[in-house]
């Protein structure tokens, strides 16, 4: 049985972390997650959430609950290793970090958070351990969807620090994150086309 993921394509911010994690699971286990892209700001039927996952009669509606569901149902992806309590607890810590410290708009606080991330990544190629985990996708997703981060990348990238930029560019150029972004943009274009014709 596959997981049903529904992501609002007009949401602000778009749930990029959830989409990238879903692409990664599907790359390893094709068809594990089916994705729907409704053309709305929020999902009215789901109490105004911007993304939900449905599995076995239950609905999950926060970024961190959704990606943990992916990771726990598909441990072979290595995204959230249930057999390694240290690694999965570290991942949890970074999921909390993304939720509390990256999903804000206070510029000064964000700047301090970027500096913290940059320092963390000095000697690390991945956020946790030596492979991709949920932490990489969720932190990347929070940055990818942030207007503040987008502005800094465009105007004064160097102020983010070389380590953060190196890691961000790496995650940003993975096949799965490119797919996540491209599919989202394609949905948008399809809609523009049908509006023009109609």
């Amino acid at each position: 049985m596959s997981i049903q993921l529904i992501v609002a394509t007009k949401a602000s911010p778009i749930s990029y972390g959830v989409l990238a994690a879903a692409e990664q699971v599907n790359a390893i286990k094709p068809g594990a997650i089916t994705i729907e892209y409704p053309d709305t700001k929020t999902l009215e039927a789901e109490g105004g959430a911007t993304a939900v996952a449905k599995f076995n009669g239950q609905t999950y509606s926060s970024t961190n609950a959704i990606v943990r569901l992916f990771g726990r149902l598909h441990p072979e992806t290595g995204l959230y290793d249930p057999k390694d309590p240290i690694s999965s607890t570290l991942v949890d810590q970074w999921l909390d970090f993304a939720e509390s410290k990256l999903s804000i708009s206070d510029f000064k606080a964000l700047d301090a958070t970027y500096k913290e991330l940059n320092k963390h990544l000095t000697l690390r190629s991945f956020i946790v351990g030596y492979q991709l985990t949920l932490a990489d996708f969720v932190v990347w997703g929070a940055l990818r969807g942030s207007p503040v981060f987008a502005r800094i990348v465009k105007t004064k990238k160097e102020s983010l620090g070389v380590y953060l930029v190196r890691w961000y560019e790496y995650i940003n150029t993975l096949e799965v994150t490119k797919n996540a972004v491209e599919k989202m943009q394609k949905q948008d274009k399809l809609k523009v086309k049908s509006n023009e014709q109609g």
């Binding site: 500096k115 940059n118 320092k119 000095t122 000697l123 690390r124 160097e158 070389v162 380590y163």
Partner: peptide, 12 residues
């Protein structure tokens, strides 16, 4: 290698 023992990053 101690991954936490790093100098304060220098910015441009």
């Amino acid at each position: 290698i101690n991954l936490k023992d790093v100098p304060e990053p220098v910015f441009a």
